[in-house]
Design a protein around this nucleic acid. Structure first.
Lengths: 165, 165
DNA sequence: GTCTTAATACTCGGATATTACTTGTCCGAGTATTAGAGG
DNA sequence: CCTCTAATACTCGGACAAGTAATATCCGAGTATTAAGAC
């Protein structure tokens, strides 16, 4: 039960992109530099977000990443599944069918009770994350930041942002 | 985000132990044989349950494992944390403090908004699992099993069970 | 001066090593049985 | 025949390899710029 570190990076990167006006973006190297994380691995996470349709990309000299849809329509669950994959955390190997008292096929119509309990818990986890979009995250971050810090971030973004149509 | 296979095995083993009357238990080899899983690895999971205080052990010739408390007081969350450890799935590395616009220490009084959202989701996950005890699992399994199968299991348990004081 | 074109510089994308962890296995520590010898 | 003792057989407990996935990295594919050359 371990969430990949890439999820954290991708989430922070997405929040940063959400601070940009529509039509502007950042290149992978800038996203990595902003948080002082290894550039190539950051790029790998951004590729995953791209394949999941969360960010749009532009190649070439003025290339970079921008959000593919409004920040309010991108949840933390979207980002997590983009990086980790959408397979469920608990995988039932149906060991109830094994051994001297193995369950008969007709008993297995219904899902194994243990698997069902874990899947219900995962649903609760998913719904909690689906309730949080980049907008709420950005608002929370802004509320905790002094005005001076927000100005610094704004200036940095203005310097690094590129136009992506 | 992957739950160890050992959690599944330990959960099934605990449910099996809950079917025994108080004061009786099973040895690790029997638990493994019941589900046709590798014996030594099954034993490893049982050791984890033992260290977590979920099962009591007896060594020696008539050794084995029995539940340490009533099945109604053992939840799936207990079993999962016993195997996987109780550290949270999302680890915040505080990358918001890095880079050219790193957050100042006073901003970090409050938890990072992203980490807070993930931890809230984990709480929902945990509470869902804490609501399910071995009793509910056993009841669900029994409801789906034909009478004949339950008799087979009962006979097998009677044959393999050992007395553990 | 203007248009075409080819070279170029800079970006993303996928394939490639390295490390950490889960999975699977082994041998030593510990205890009730039990066989045997002595009383 | 009973009791004490020591050997024994069987269990759990922690230490030890093998396989797999996460982490970190590199080089090739693709595009806007741009500079040169022809008209």
């Amino acid at each position: 039960m371990q969430i990949s570190k890439g999820v954290e990076w991708a989430a922070h990167a997405a929040v940063l992109l959400s601070a940009l006006p529509t039509g502007r973006g950042l290149k992978a190297e800038a996203l990595a530099r902003y948080h002082s994380v290894p550039g190539p691995y950051m790029a790998k996470q951004m590729q995953a977000l791209s394949k999941a349709g969360i960010v749009q990309t532009a190649r070439g000299k003025h290339g970079g990443y921008r959000l593919a849809r409004p920040a309010g329509e991108i949840t933390l669950w979207d980002i997590m599944t983009a990086i980790e994959g959408s397979k469920s955390a608990f995988t039932c190997t149906e060991i109830r069918q094994n051994g001297p008292c193995g369950a008969t096929p007709e008993q297995c119509r219904k899902k194994c009770a243990i698997a069902a309990a874990f899947h219900a818990a995962e649903v609760a986890f998913r719904e909690s994350l689906q309730a949080i979009s980049l907008v709420e995250i950005a608002a929370g971050v802004a509320a905790d930041s002094p005005r001076k810090h927000l100005r610094n971030v704004g200036a940095w973004l203005e310097k690094e942002a590129v136009a992506i149509g």
